[in-house]
Amino acid sequence: MHAASEPTETMMAGQIPLPVPSKMTEPFWAGMRQNKLLLQRCKTCNAYRWTPQVLCRDCYSEDYEWSEVSGKGTVFSYTVVHRPPLPAFKAPYIVAVIELAEGPLMLTNVIDCDPAALKVGDKVKVAFEKATDEVTLYRFRLA
């Protein structure tokens, strides 16, 4: 339990902390602004990867492109959070790991869903949520 960190610099009162892109991840967030879910795809072996990494995790190639994926997946695991880290998170809410159709696991939220009805294995589809002019977030809805 040691991944402690300060709240991000963009955090403001009453707002959830929003991501601060790095040089490597800026194309991902640019894709989000156009409602496109992009993953790094290796130009040598075609493997997808998530989270963003400098090298392909399969063949260690440095060459990749940001490639649009289907946005489809299944619920790998989920939890209903009742005690939010900050008041801006409106509890209860669902945090989930989604197994994307392309393979990688993605940490996110499932929205517009009765927590009592959700099951591991349920099919989901990405839902884009514009937070600011710069940041669009990826959450998922039951498909």
Binding site: H2, A3, S5, E6, T8, I16, P19, T25, P85, N109
Partner: peptide
């Protein structure tokens, strides 16, 4: 503080 992981692809999910 440690219960608020600050990573770009983690923190905003709550």
């Amino acid at each position: 503080a440690y219960t608020r992981p600050g990573y770009e692809f983690t923190e905003w999910t709550g």
